[in-house]
Each structure stands twice: as structure tokens, then as C-alpha cells.
Amino acid sequence: MKSFVTLFLILLTFCVSAQDYPESYICYRTGADITIDGLVSDEEWSKAKWTNKFVDIEGDKKPKPKYKTRVKMLWDENYFYIAAELQEPHIWAKLKQRDTVIFYDNDFEVFIDPQGDNHLYYEFEINALNTIWDLMLVKPYRDGAPAINAWDINGEKSAVKIYGTLNNPNDKDKKWTVEIAFPWKVLKECAYQKRKPKTGEQWRVNFSRVNWDIEIKDGKYAKKLNPETGKTNPEHNWVWSPQGAIAMHQPETWGYVEFTDEIVGTKELTPRIDEDYQAKIELIRLYNLEKKMYKKYGKYFNKITSNYTILIETTSKQFLISIQAASGKTWYINQDSKLWTD
């Protein structure tokens, strides 16, 4: 039995690989007020760079998205600003009730993990009707997360501009654009030292676009059905920073947004590289191995092969893994996939 377990662990070690480094972005300060009207035409927005175009949530192993999506970011003393452009030849939306599951429509989504520890993070979804769903996650769904739907981003401002006509299948549309202003007074609730970021600090952020295959029935848009199963075709998930799986709730693979006090358009900066990223991904790999072993054998194991110097402590229901990273810091992960350092 012991030799089988050892072999099983070795095989799993070679089967799990880390994702390439996530997307990253420098978020500059805005030098003027931004009016939230859905128009990405403010002078300040023209100075900010677009992100790379979105890709499939699973990355390069899937085809590139059919329609282009990209984002810009800025900030000031009061808000974290986001502008998004979503190409779409047929713009439609039905949901009008706040905190409905918005991704049942085509939507744009924002995910923010202020401390980058996989815990206490935010999710925001918006459709072409400017209907929103905002919620807080105590921890990822994979770890039994309670999603706090009653939580609201009080003071949030959003607007949508449609280049075409909404819910009209008789013409061809161009795109819709979204502007969002998230107030720091709310976002800082889950941030380090309960404050907005300082220059040079990075938050983990990702963006997602859900897009459904549609057809026209009786003069209206309808989700396309699979003729063999009679069920709705699965949605497309297009994201800024790929997840490697159809799973947005993996904060460890979200992008890096670095905030700077430099005014947009005045200086060209490059985001710093998180030299401990690969160590964190190794911790996630070890976390996944422990979960698989517990499911198979009913216990956690304190000996797993790794190229890093690691220490594993286990009980009947918990584990704690520490790793020595390139920066010299010791990073930790537990059975709830929380990442932290001393």
C-alpha cells in the first residue's frame, strides 16, 4: 500500500503544471474627473492603454474568441475606474433585477482580490441593460465558500453605451462599452490595512465576458439549442488573464494590476514581476494533491515530492504547507487554499 501511494504521488506531481505568468497592467492616476456615462471618450481614457485582447478562459488550448474584448483602468483618490469595450453584432439583454445571476445574459464581469490571498474577494457582473450583480466571496467555491449576495458596493457607479440597438435582431450592431467606478471606501474593506493601494502595490484582478450562441426565433433573440440534445449550447467564457480551466474562482491565476501615483500619459512604466509567483503556483499544486489524496484515502499526507524546500503539517482535517520562495520569504497555504506570508 505504501509503495502504491508513493507512486501515485509521483505521477500526480508530473501531471500538474503551473500556468504561465498572468497578464499585468499599470493603473495610472487620472489627472481629471471621469464622467461615468458609458462613453470611453474622455481625454483621460484616451491616454490609458488597452489591455491585451481577451482569450478563452482555458487559454491557448481553445480557439480565440469570436469577438474582441478589452479593458482600460485608472484610479484617483476616490475610485478605481474600469472601461470595457465588447464587440458584438447582436446586442441583447433581458435581466433587469439587481443581484440576478447576470451571466444568464451576455455580460461583463470584474473580479478583485485586494490582498492576493484567495480569500475575501469581490465579484461584479453587468449586462447591456446596466443591471448589476455584486457579491463578496469569503473563499473560493472549491473550498465551500459562502457567497455573500446581500453585500453591495455602495457608491458604485456604472453606465453602458450601445453602438447599435438593443434587442433588435433586424439590424447589425457594432459594440457596447461599459464604464465602472468602484469606490475605495468599499473596496478597502478586504484590502491590506483596510486602505486603498499605495503606489507600487499590486492587486489581483481579472475580467470575464460570458457570451452565448444565439439565433433568431419569431423575430426575437434566443439562445441556440443543440439539435441532438435539445439543450442550450454552453456559454463562451472569454477572459483577460487565462485560468487554464473553466473556473473563474481561481484568484491565484488572475492578473496583476499595479497602481502608481504617476498621472496617466506622463510616464511609461512596466509592471514589476512577482518573483514568488511560481512558488505560489507550486503551493496551489500541492494543495490540489492533498485534496485528491484526502478524497481517495481519507487523510492528508505530509510527504509530497517538490522541487522547492517545503514543510507539511497535517491533522485529520487540516493541513499547512510552507515553501521557501525566491524572494527569501516563506509562503503558506492551507486546506482552504488561503495563501499568505509572514
Rank of each mutant, 00 (worst) to 15 (best):
W184R: 13
I112K: 03
K267N: 10
L137R: 05
P65G: 02
G298F: 06
A32D: 11
Y287E: 02
T13K: 12
W176K: 06
F8G: 09
T131Y: 11
S306A: 14
L283M: 00
K61T: 11
N211Q: 10
W92K: 02
L129M: 10
I180Y: 03
I91W: 02
W133H: 08
F301V: 15
I323R: 03
E235R: 11
A84M: 08
N302D: 15
P234A: 11
M248N: 14
N206T: 06
G265Y: 00
F80G: 06
A93S: 07
Q87F: 07
I321L: 10
N106T: 04
F4K: 09
I162Y: 00
S322V: 06
F8M: 11
E156N: 05
Q335R: 13
E156P: 01
Q318T: 15
L166Q: 09
L283A: 02
E268N: 14
S316Y: 08
N206D: 14
Y256I: 05
P65W: 01
T35D: 11
I263E: 00
I216H: 10
N237P: 03
I34P: 03
H119Q: 06
F103H: 06
P251Q: 00
L187N: 10
E23T: 07
Y81G: 00
E282W: 03
K194V: 08
K94C: 05
Q19A: 08
K64L: 13
D56E: 09
A181T: 02
E85V: 13
V257F: 03
E290Q: 15
V239S: 07
D113K: 09
T270D: 11
P63R: 04
A147K: 08
I102P: 00
V110F: 09
N211Y: 15
F103Q: 04
T266G: 04
K303R: 14
V178L: 05
L166R: 01
K291E: 06
D42R: 06
I333Y: 06
S3I: 12
F4N: 11
M73G: 04
A247H: 14
D171L: 08
A279W: 00
W151I: 05
L129S: 08
F108W: 06
E58Q: 05
A325L: 07
K280D: 01
W238L: 05
I132K: 13
E88M: 11
K223E: 12
Y277N: 07
E268K: 07
K295F: 13
D276F: 00
G164R: 04
F108C: 09
T69P: 05
L74Y: 09
V205S: 03
V101H: 13
L311R: 15
D99E: 13
Y67W: 10
F124V: 00
W176L: 09
N149R: 07
N154S: 14
D56G: 10
E235C: 09
H249Q: 12
G200C: 00
A247C: 10
A83K: 03
N206S: 13
I91F: 04
R142D: 01
L339I: 02
